[in-house]
Design a protein around this nucleic acid. Structure first.
Lengths: 229, 229
DNA sequence: ACGAAGGCTCTTGTATACAAGATTTATCAT
DNA sequence: ATGATAAATCTTGTATACAAGAGCCTTCGT
């Protein structure tokens, strides 16, 4: 009767981890804009803890690049230049491309069906014209592809960069037309993976993720609006 | 006269950072083997500091994956299974492949010459049959390719994973024949990049980095010897 | 002798205290 | 009035103190 209910690592109760998660979430939601300074005592008071776990959380987020830690000068939300943002999306495209290629090669019949089911889940959000809901299901769809690569390290790397780009993907979907084309592109990816066409799957998801031309301009403008308003 | 001598960020004097660097170095050198437990008070005494900066260093290394931090149970050097090691090298191959492709497209004539010069630097180490020296120059050669991608984010990601794999690359070069073939493969990569052949460059460096077949068996056996002896 | 239960010790997690660099403000000189 | 300089303040970096969970050892029962 005393069997551990969760053999896997269940939520470890460390304040620093919880704080890091919450801060990452708030940054993704735009509560802390790029360039914002994060004061240790302020955060400590706000969360009702001491500076120690706050510092540990800041260090964690600094390691992921979400924050920039300048010694003796505090932590600020990393400012990402348009140039660098495009670089990051290029790397994301390459990682997802690798995921799709491996998925096309390795995914079982059942896994392909499950992926298609998740793609279908996005329909409701598209038809209901609900960008936030689509954002969530879209994210799940992409994460499913990472998993289908059957390369757990690759999956983790892709997830990490995905989290890092979260604030910007969110902005990207604000562009109305993007939700529709995004959904359409997903269908092509599912087909390519299901048919085992590695190169086609890789190529399609690369085109889906890469930001260039007018789509990059769209992202920049909504980014400018978000940081001003 | 009071111009700052170094406009770029010069070494910030934070104990946690220095400790993280030193620990990473010692782990790479095999002073701490996978599975080793890192005691906070022990490290603090050994380095003559308090537990605070030690903890911060451990958290940093935990974020990179070099250490595994189990809440309330301390930090251990992450144990990497053969399966996972191959996964990591696969991702490394993909990142370097992307670097090479971009380098072939973007590198200037001068940059190509500089790369070839660095390749030539490796000759001495090969002829002198000095694996450690070759290890260093080989590393510089690869880092040069990262830089030639002209994608600074990609460069950082590749560098990070390169550091993560450092202990294992080192072992890999212990295999005598590997130094010679490695050097030969470099020449092909330089040629492909210099001639601007993206696909050839990408393909060649992928083959150079990926570990499979008997090369993987070689790595595993030297790894087993290293952890036992 | 073997196994389990309880306490004891050891280690980590968090809070607080102290040190030192960075920033800001006020004062003084030109 | 403007600029620089110096002192005061504020923030971060480090050390120490305290709390609590994890692991170990002893002891007790069968």
């Amino acid at each position: 009767m005393d069997i551990a209910p969760n053999p896997a690592d269940n939520e470890p109760p460390r304040l620093a981890n919880q704080l890091a998660d919450q801060l990452a979430e708030r940054i993704a939601m735009g509560d802390y804009l790029p360039g914002s300074r994060l004061d240790e005592v302020d955060l400590a008071e706000r969360f009702g803890v001491s500076r120690t776990p706050v510092r540990e959380a800041l260090i964690q987020l600094g390691s992921t690049g979400l924050l920039t830690l300048r010694p003796r000068r505090g932590a600020v939300v990393t400012e990402v230049s348009p140039q660098r943002l495009m670089e990051m999306f290029d790397v994301m495209a390459e990682l997802e491309s690798m995921c799709a290629r491996l998925a096309a090669r390795r995914a079982t019949r059942d896994e392909c069906l499950a992926l298609r089911a998740q793609h279908d889940d996005c329909v409701d959000a598209v038809q209901g014209n609900d960008p936030d809901e689509y954002y969530l299901r879209n994210e799940r769809f992409h994460h499913a592809i990472y998993r289908l690569s059957h390369n757990s390290f690759l999956e983790e790397q892709a997830l990490a960069l995905s989290r890092r780009l979260r604030p910007y993907r969110r902005l990207q979907l604000r562009v109305r037309a993007r939700v529709n084309s995004s959904f359409a592109e997903h269908a092509g990816v599912v087909d390519a993976i299901s048919s085992g066409d590695e190169e086609l799957a890789a190529q399609r998801i690369r085109g889906h993720v890469t930001i260039q031309g007018e789509r990059f301009a769209d992202l920049l403008s909504s980014l400018a609006r978000a940081t001003q308003g």
